[in-house]
Simulated assay, not measured.
Amino acid sequence: MRKIKLLAVTHHSRNNINPIRPEASQIIGLHRSGEVDVTVLCNPDSTLIPYLEKEGIEVLTDPLDKKISFRTMSKIRNILIERNIDVLHLFNNIACSNGATAALGLKAKVIAYRGQTGNVSRLDPSSYLVMLHPRLDKIICVAKAVENDLKKYLWGDKNRAITVYKGHDQSWYQSDSADLSHLPLHNDSFKISLVANLRPRKGLHVLMDALALMPKDINIDVLLVGADPNNEKIKEMIQRSTIPRRVHAMGYREDAPEVAAASDVIILPTTKREGLCRAVLEANSYGVPAIVSDTGGNAELVLHGYTGIVVPPSDPKALAIAIEKLYGDRELCKEYGSQARLRIKKQFNVEQGVDKTLKIYKSLLNN
């Protein structure tokens, strides 16, 4: 049987490999299946390149730095034609807007990736360059909540949206916990971490308000990964907690998963527009449970009362109660962490993501 000819288009520039591991592993898994002939188009400084080339995958490059680039469209279109590509898989918005347009009039099936809820509108012309692009045959969503949200906006066949969970590999999470000795932590404190690019919707203000509701003698330390300690707004937010000496802004860290591993619990109090949070997946893979708000795919990732706690979004009181519950019952906290690790291993592994993606390819090509 002839192999499926795949062109995957993606863009990455971070030094930290953790943010791109699920995507890279999916592409590599498709290559290793023996059923897919993989070509990757990515930016010249992509951190993906050495991992892909080590597997024998051919990598082509393009800046991929503009949402609408006639140069990029021309390059993608030429590859589709010259290599007789069967499937064009687009992993971000720049790839989608250029790739889907480049495929107009060609035979290749076109698949986009959708990583969060919200920010799509039938009245917004820019949406028709990405998720509402008429050339998309399938949109792989990172969570069922993302799929259901997107279906509200799709025209025509709403089943073009489908869920495939990102796959994580337990072998990625064997490093020692981060060394926190440089921080002024309190003896035997209960360590809480929030790992996020701290945009307002990530809910730092909700966590700070929750801390202000807690007993003043509670022995906790809060680790804010991604929070610039020199940012005035962050400083003001930390004061809002009423326990500023117990809140530590750690800035950007390439060892964010290891910081989570050094914690007792990870918090994600997102107020809206969430997908399937990588930070929670990473913490769970280290056996650290999570308290998350019920937005996007969080409630799919965390089983309330079994692998962690799910609270209503924008509810500091509920968040404070959840933190105090695990603070007061360390054995329950450890049990949640153990169950979380097992669940990630069973339901969010690389193999299930590769298998489901391959089935989608075959289904599209057999129609």
Rank of each mutant, 00 (worst) to 15 (best):
L6K: 03
A8M: 06
N15Y: 05
N15K: 13
N16L: 04
I17K: 01
I17Y: 00
N18S: 09
P22A: 11
P22Y: 03
I27W: 03
L30C: 06
L30H: 01
D37L: 12
T39S: 12
Y51I: 07
Y51M: 11
E55S: 06
L60S: 09
L60W: 11
K66I: 04
K66D: 06
S74G: 12
N78M: 12
I79D: 04
I81A: 10
N84T: 13
L90T: 06
F91G: 02
N92R: 11
S97Y: 03
S97T: 13
G99H: 02
A103F: 04
G105E: 06
L106V: 05
Q116P: 00
G118Q: 03
G118F: 01
V120R: 00
R122I: 12
S126G: 04
Y128A: 09
Y128I: 09
V130M: 11
M131A: 14
L132T: 02
H133C: 03
H133F: 05
I140K: 03
C141H: 06
A143Y: 04
A145E: 03
V146C: 10
N148K: 10
D149C: 00
L150N: 00
G156Y: 00
K158D: 00
V164K: 01
Q170D: 14
S171A: 14
W172S: 03
W172H: 10
Y173C: 02
D179Q: 11
F190T: 05
F190H: 08
K191F: 03
I192E: 08
I192W: 06
S193T: 12
A196D: 07
L198M: 15
R201A: 15
V206C: 02
D209S: 13
D209R: 14
M214P: 03
M214N: 13
M214R: 13
D217S: 14
I218D: 03
N219R: 10
V225A: 02
P229T: 14
N230S: 14
K233S: 14
K233Y: 13
S241Y: 04
R253S: 00
E254V: 01
R273E: 15
E274F: 08
C277S: 15
V280R: 02
L281V: 10
A283Q: 00
N284Y: 00
G287P: 01
V288K: 10
P289H: 08
I291R: 10
G296V: 11
N298F: 08
A299E: 08
A299V: 07
V302I: 08
L303F: 11
L303H: 11
Y306C: 15
G308P: 10
I309V: 15
A320S: 14
A322R: 04
E324P: 01
L326D: 02
R330H: 07
E331A: 14
C333H: 09
S338V: 07
R343V: 09
I344S: 05
K346C: 08
F348L: 13
F348E: 05
N349I: 11
N349V: 12
V350P: 01
E351R: 11
E351L: 12
T357S: 03
T357F: 00
T357M: 11
L358Q: 05
K359G: 08
I360F: 07
Y361N: 01
S363Y: 04
L364F: 04
